[in-house]
Amino acid sequence: MVGNRAARRIVVIVLMLAAALWVVPIVWMVSMALQPNDLLARTTSNVAWGLIPWPFTLDNLGFVLSSGLTPRWFLNSAIVALGMTSLVLVLSSMAGYAFARIPFPGRRLLYPLVLAGLVIPEQAIFIPLYTMFAEWGWHNGYFALIAPRLAVPIGVFLMTQFFRGIPDYIEEAATLDGAGRWTVFTRIMLPLSIPALSTLAILTFLYAWNDYLWPLVSASRPEMFTITLGLASLQTNFAQSEGLGRVMASGVLASLPVVLLFLLFQRQVVRGIAMGSGK
């Protein structure tokens, strides 16, 4: 046992070193966001390879928050992520409920057809989607950024699986009391499915916040950029070097909501990933 405990201690030390190595790039980004721009133009390794923000300044964060389009991008990301999340929740839970619990004619055919959509990735259809939305004049609008994700059947799959697991008698007791489908769904099924819904919500939110390819083609006007896309546009300006500190500050701010969300809802995120991959 003593040998075991010593071995465990070595493992923990190795893991802690590895974890430190793992977060160093993030620390570095934060540290650069907190150093003056003109210093960074000269050197990025002022103190301890630049890992310690000295001299320290909040100017970059202040600049990014007060000027330029970053606040607008932030707002766009929030609108898109929240809009997408709520719509996905509504559509997926309704469809999932029907597939799991309403014996309507054709569902045995329809459900596999819907699941078949899982094999069509966004990357395979973004060009036709682009031309369709162009014809409809949707680009550079919020709905254009939200819509493609509404069709992805992963949410329907998750919700159907979840609703199938709810025992029959709960619903049927309510039906006996004369409750209609809609009442059963909103009053009984939805409250029961909060774990699944929160999982789906977090996964969708993270996806929306981090999506890059579709906003890149759909939003061609900077005032419609999401923060993820806006950050990319700052990066490709590197050659012009408009201030490393400011670019890094944008990166820090862009990450803040998702990191906070993750730290607050770590359990749901983790379960969501496990569930979302069909475990």
């Binding site: 939305f133 004049g137 900077p222 990319a232 546009s233 700052l234 490709t236 050659a239």
Partner: peptide, 20 residues
Amino acid sequence: LPTDWGNYYDQIKASYAAGN
């Protein structure tokens, strides 16, 4: 509409195609 260097022509073309 300050557009970045890297994707400038992609996005200009995309904006033509999207009608804006």
